[in-house]
Amino acid sequence: MLRYFVFFLLICFYLQSSAQKSYSIKGFIKNEINPQMSISGPLKNGNYVYLEYLSGKVDSSIIKDNRFFFEGSIANPEPASLNHAHGGATILLSYESNFEVEFILNSPESGLYEYLSNVNSDSFFYNTWLKVGNRSHSLVKKRSELQNLNQQSINIESKNEIEVINKLLDNLYSSIIKNNQLINIEKAYILMSDPNFSNEKYKSFFDELSTTEKETKIGSLFKKKLENFS
Rank of each mutant, 00 (worst) to 15 (best):
L105T: 06
Y126G: 01
F124I: 15
V119G: 04
F206G: 04
I162R: 01
P108G: 03
L105P: 02
E145S: 08
S153Y: 11
F103P: 01
S174F: 10
E100R: 07
K201C: 06
L93Y: 09
I185T: 15
N196D: 09
E100Y: 13
N196S: 11
N179A: 11
H137N: 11
E145Q: 15
E96R: 15
E100F: 04
P195H: 03
Q151A: 09
I104R: 10
E213C: 06
T212S: 14
A188R: 10
Q181S: 12
V132A: 05
K214L: 05
S123W: 11
K178D: 14
I190L: 03
I218K: 04
N184H: 14
G219E: 07
R143F: 08
E114I: 12
E109G: 00
N148S: 09
N148M: 10
D194C: 03
L82D: 07
L82Y: 08
S94Y: 06
T212W: 07
T90F: 11
N160L: 15
L130Q: 12
I162P: 00
S107Q: 15
K224P: 00
E213P: 03
F103W: 03
N199G: 00
F103S: 04
E100T: 07
E215R: 14
E157S: 11
S193R: 10
E215D: 15
